[in-house]
Nucleic acid binder design. Structure first.
Length: 573
RNA sequence: GGGCGGGUGGCGAAGAGGCUAACGCUGUGGUCUGCAAAAUCACCAUUCACCGGUUCAAAUCCGGUCCCGCCCUCCA
């Protein structure tokens, strides 16, 4: 596996001492709901983490919260709240959003306010070592003392001084020196310290908290590319003198989300709150959008992008649904206890295909299927072999893409190819062909596993809602009867009503199939159906009006015609 | 001004010396269908901002030009 290390500006082979990977990602300053720009590193590094898990690493993941900061203090003053209460509130809100997006929880979520003692200790030590100095109630880091300063952001001290956009503060030895400890202004939040009442600067927290939970050297440190300078540069400058060791082995930075080619940020005011987006699009669609571009590239946002992602992802989801549908028609016991580790199977097949070609693959496939299928002899056809070989090859390509600096865009491309192979194979399957069914199920499960690295397919199978399902079944029965009676006017009306409720009906050779993404709104659906029934009654088409009543009755919905109009109620209520 | 990164079809986006320039959206055609829709399959860039150069071979390497984004200030 190779990953792009900002420190060396090149792709490097990923090596760790054990199977444990120590990973630290800079989290948000919590003074507001998180926006789409904040969501990008969340999803990117969650994907990195999931892929490392998938590869068999044991990831120790730490993400901080900056809960002590000017912005929090200002915002709290506006809302007349205690700063730490405001920060805590938005940390809670953060978890609502992160959980909704399916971000796997970190092992530890340290907060600055819980680590003031550690921070004071670290600053004291930096002063002792000559890397920091006190001026009045402030403590500054002495950048000149750290000769390697600039190694991450690839700029020299001279460049920075030449840039001269640094605020001149005569109390500092050099303009580039940054605050480790800030004296409290009157009435402001503070902690006592050897230098008087105050609070920590921004950068010191990450150095202190990351080493506290992960040790002196960590494997992967992630964050947005705007943090490279000064934040991460400063983290190195603080941590390395304190520990005497290399702070971070691999620095990973994600690119930015822009809106109309301009950076999305809170200060520019062009940001989109993640929660608002999640109200309109499922989490895996948002993840798809974020990960369908390489993590280091800029990503432009506008409202058409998520719609495109939704359509694209629907294609992948549909493959899984098609396989589910095939299997629902089979005796599930045949399938239930065959292979549990699909990935292992396809990895083995992929290796076989790569090393020895098709003949070896066929032998291997026969052997593996015999083993798992628990039948004495299994003979696979050429078509089945070709299918499995195609899947195994695409598996290899997927892994290759991900191993190359997490090339998710390329890997997703292979996922689409995998889906297409499955679709094509499905269309050739004869329904009684158990072996093909098993093979396609293996492929489909594997396909799903790969997709889950990206957080796809999280809610592919609708949670069963017996009430809604039986009502839906009743309405489909009515429509089927109408179609059988060639009453296409009614059949189409029924279909239109269902479409309005975001339910898609597909008439296939096997009969109608229906799909819906969001939970059914029974009330408005029934209101519309009763409207149709009233029209039928007005047209004196009592046959179908009665049929609607009967079918709904069977779904425990009682229809009452009263002089005031038609009502419905739940029979069980 | 300094430091990074980028400009690929109608759109999004991979590819980083040689296989048909992936994949997705849109569009077109076929299959399915009572008709639609959906689904599905197929097709859709002789060309990679521009100009020179290196090479048997360049979207990919080198030089120049023109654009764009990020950082140098709180930011993911």
């Amino acid at each position: 596996m190779r990953l792009f290390n900002t420190l060396t500006s090149s792709k490097e082979e990923f090596t760790v001492d054990s199977r444990e990977v120590k990973m630290y990602v800079c989290g948000p300053t919590t003074y507001n709901y998180i926006h789409l720009g904040n969501a990008r590193p969340l999803v990117v590094f969650d994907t990195v983490r999931r892929y490392l898990d998938f590869k068999g690493y044991n990831v120790n993941y730490v993400q901080n919260f900056t809960d002590v900061d000017d912005k929090i203090i200002n915002r709290a003053a506006e809302e007349n709240m205690e700063p730490l209460d405001l920060a805590a509130r938005y940390i809670d809100e953060y978890f609502v959003d992160a959980d909704a997006l399916g971000i796997k929880r970190a092992q530890v979520y340290p907060r600055v306010s819980d680590h003031i003692t550690d921070i004071i200790e670290a600053i004291s030590k930096l002063i002792q070592l000559g890397y920091a100095y006190q001026v009045d109630g402030d403590v500054y880091y002495r950048v000149k003392a750290f000769t390697e300063y600039g190694k991450l952001s690839h700029r020299s001290l001279e460049d920075m001084l030449a840039g001269a956009r640094v605020e001149i503060d005569n109390r500092k030895e050099e303009p580039v020196d940054f605050a480790l400890w800030k004296e409290a202004k009157p009435g402001e939040l503070f902690w006592s310290s050897p230098w008087g009442d105050g609070r920590p600067g921004w950068h010191i927290e990450c150095s202190v908290m990351s080493t506290r939970y992960l040790g002196d050297s960590i494997d992967i440190h992630g964050g947005g590319s705007d943090l490279i300078f000064p934040h991460h540069e400063n983290e190195i400058a603080q941590a390395e003198p304190l520990t005497g060791k290399q702070f971070v082995k691999y620095w990973l930075h994600n690119g930015f989300i822009t809106v109309n080619q301009e950076k999305m940020s809170k200060s520019l005011g062009n940001f989109f709150i993640l929660r608002d987006i999640l109200a309109k699009f499922p989490p895996d669609v948002v993840r798809f959008y974020l990960i369908n571009t390489h993590y280091r590239s800029p990503l432009d946002f506008d409202d058409t992008k998520l719609e495109e992602a939704r359509r694209a992802l629907a294609r992948l989801k549909n493959t899984v649904s098609l396989v589910d549908e095939l299997l629902s028609k089979m005796d599930s016991n045949i399938i239930r206890d065959i292979v549990t580790d699909y990935t292992k199977l396809f990895s083995a097949l992929g290796t076989a295909a790569k090393n020895q070609g098709a003949i070896a693959l066929e032998t291997k496939l026969n052997a593996l299927l015999s083993e798992y299928y628990r039948h004495e002899d299994v003979t696979v056809t050429e078509q089945q072999t070709n299918f499995v070989m195609a899947i195994a090859q695409l598996h290899e390509k997927f892994i290759e893409a991900m191993d190359d600096d997490f090339n998710t865009a390329k890997a997703i491309g292979h996922l689409f190819e995998l889906g297409r192979e499955i679709n094509i194979f499905l269309s050739h399957i004869i329904k009684t062909d158990t072996l093909s069914t098993i093979i396609v199920k293996l492929a489909s499960n594997h396909f799903e596993n790969l997709g889950k690295i990206f957080g796809f397919f999280s809610q592919i199978r609708n949670e069963s809602n017996p009430e809604a399902d039986s009502i839906l079944a009743a309405l489909i029965n009515v429509r089927n009867s109408a179609r059988a009676a060639k009453n296409y006017g009614l059949a189409d009306r029924m279909r239109d009503v269902l479409n309005e409720e975001q339910i898609v009906i597909e008439d296939t050779a096997e009969g109608p199939r229906c799909k819906y993404e969001n939970s059914l709104k029974v009330e408005s659906l029934l209101a519309k159906v009763l409207e149709i029934r009233n029209e039928l009654k007005a047209a004196k088409n009592f046959e179908f009006a009665d049929l609607i009543r009967q079918e709904l009755n069977m779904a425990q919905i009682l229809i009452e015609d009263t002089p005031e109009g038609t009502r419905w109620k739940n029979a069980e209520a």
